[in-house]
Amino acid sequence: MNHTLSILLQNEAGALVRVAGLFAARGYNIDTLTVAATHDPAVSRLTLSLQCDEAALGQILQQTRKLVDVLQVAHPAAALAA
C-alpha cells in the first residue's frame, strides 16, 4: 500500500542523511521525497512516500521516531482514516 509520511526535522548537520540512511538500512524504498522550509528556519518538513504493508509502516514510524533530530512523524492518511 502507498503511504505518505510527513516528518518535521531539526535542520542539523546530517539530519536528512540520517533519515534517508535509516530507510535505506532497513530496506524501505522511498518513492518520492520533498524537503521544504517551514516558518521556523531551524526546522524543515520532509514529505515522503513509500510502498509498504501496515506492519512495516508501524516499524518505520517507530524507528523514525528514534532519530534524535526528528521532531514529529505524522501519517496524515492514517490520521484522517482514524
Binding site: E12, A13, G14, V17, R18, G21, A25, V68, D69
Partner: peptide, 16 residues
C-alpha cells in the same frame, strides 16, 4: 564521520 557514525550510533553531532 557524521555520515559513517550517523548510520550506526544513537546519535552523532558535528560541531560547526
Amino acid at each position: 564521520v557524521s555520515n559513517i557514525m550517523g548510520a550506526c550510533a544513537k546519535h552523532v553531532f558535528l560541531v560547526t
